[in-house]
Amino acid sequence: MIVVMRPDATQAQVDHVTNLVREMGLKDHPIVGTDLTVVAVIGDERKVDGDVLERAPGVNKVMRVLAPYKMAARTDHTETTRVTIGEGDGCVFGGTQVPVIAGPCSVEGEQEILAAAEAVKAAGAHALRGGAFKPRTNPYAFQGHGEDGLKMLAAARDATGLPIVTEVLTPSDVELVSKYADCLQIGTRNSQNFKLLEACGKQSKPVLMKRGMSMTLDEYLQAAEYILAAGNGNVILCERGIRTFEDHTRNTLSLSVVPELHERTHLPIVIDPSHGTGKAHLVPAMSKAAMACGCDGLAIEMHIDPEHALTDGAQSITPAVLSDLMEDLARVAVAVDRTCVPG
């Protein structure tokens, strides 16, 4: 951390800053220049409230050298961490393969989720998604089947061999969901539910964590740090679009976060083009673009009958579109030295 003093700062003000630094258990190293003085702060700056120093008399600004997230940072990680969902090695995020998670927004019924799983398997995708618990803006909308939905997902897994990814909404549900799921999903509305993050960090199943719709990348990685710090290193980041002034899509899908996050963190990065656009006809193009810019996986909503879907039908592609998309993704993957082989 660097504390930059004002050009007119007095020696007493510099001494006050150095005393504050020492009170925080860190070392100070004042550097006197021609025009101004800076105080280098030596030690673990992540435990320091920089606002305290910035409010001190004579201080112009405080600049952090280290990221506020220690475990999620790329530092000392030359390669992306590999996270495996399910048994075996057929669905690994962070390696050469780019797995595709596909399925309906919500688990609507036993036959429906089984048909969806069979379509996902036939298309060559690698994992099945589907919500048993659904957070809805409208309190009267379909909220999911709860544990019965989890049992339906487990039955679909047994029938197809596809690992399942499903959302958990509250800390009290973590144990139940982890009993059935191969990967726990944290949705955008819960991305700063710190008690839920900690609870997911205390269990061993991988966690797919979506970015909050109004989160900066630093805030996002600090939230992921809660899971890592609680003991679970199997975290997959998921960009699902942010809320902006633009209205031609449901959200604004920021694909530039993929190379940026690869610079900042060792965690694998998945793109959700379904929530990212909200429109099914945009999903194939954005999926291929995500593959081209270096994503480590895709999470795509696919429904066997989107027109009659209980949730998010407008952004759900059909099994036929998914099948064609998987072939296209395989070609794009080769161009960027990746693979997207069938699951």
Rank of each mutant, 00 (worst) to 15 (best):
262 H>P: 15
45 E>T: 10
138 N>T: 12
220 Y>E: 02
169 L>E: 08
205 K>I: 11
304 I>Y: 09
99 P>E: 14
82 R>V: 13
29 H>E: 14
285 A>K: 08
43 G>M: 08
235 V>E: 00
67 A>G: 00
287 S>I: 05
329 L>T: 06
119 A>T: 04
24 M>P: 05
296 D>G: 04
188 T>N: 05
22 R>I: 13
289 A>V: 09
41 V>A: 03
170 T>N: 09
273 P>K: 03
211 R>A: 08
284 P>T: 03
144 G>P: 10
213 M>D: 10
315 Q>Y: 14
23 E>C: 05
12 A>L: 14
299 A>W: 05
330 A>D: 14
31 I>M: 08
10 T>G: 03
85 I>S: 01
102 A>G: 02
67 A>N: 08
129 R>L: 00
107 V>T: 01
94 G>Y: 07
325 L>A: 12
112 E>A: 07
273 P>F: 00
68 P>W: 07
109 G>E: 12
258 V>E: 00
329 L>I: 13
177 V>H: 09
173 D>L: 15
117 A>T: 05
297 G>Y: 00
290 A>I: 13
210 K>N: 08
235 V>G: 05
160 T>E: 03
334 V>A: 15
204 S>M: 13
320 A>F: 09
36 L>F: 11
63 M>A: 14
342 P>C: 07
1 M>K: 07
97 Q>S: 15
234 N>M: 12
277 T>E: 13
308 H>Y: 09
252 T>W: 03
323 S>T: 15
29 H>L: 13
253 L>T: 06
176 L>C: 01
78 T>A: 14
216 T>P: 02
14 V>A: 01
340 C>E: 02
27 K>Y: 07
55 R>F: 06
21 V>N: 09
76 D>M: 14
316 S>E: 13
232 N>Y: 06
196 L>K: 07
260 E>M: 10
124 G>I: 12
76 D>S: 12
252 T>S: 10
250 R>L: 04
275 H>W: 03
66 L>K: 09
294 G>I: 14
140 Y>P: 02
244 T>H: 01
235 V>W: 03
218 D>A: 10
282 L>Q: 00
193 N>Q: 04
319 P>Y: 14
265 T>M: 11
35 D>H: 15
279 K>L: 15
104 P>R: 01
179 K>S: 06
333 A>G: 11
111 Q>R: 13
33 G>P: 11
83 V>T: 09
102 A>H: 00
63 M>P: 00
303 H>V: 03
151 K>H: 15
68 P>V: 11
218 D>M: 02
223 A>N: 04
163 P>C: 12
117 A>G: 12
128 L>P: 15
277 T>W: 06
14 V>G: 00
177 V>D: 07
237 L>H: 02
136 R>C: 05
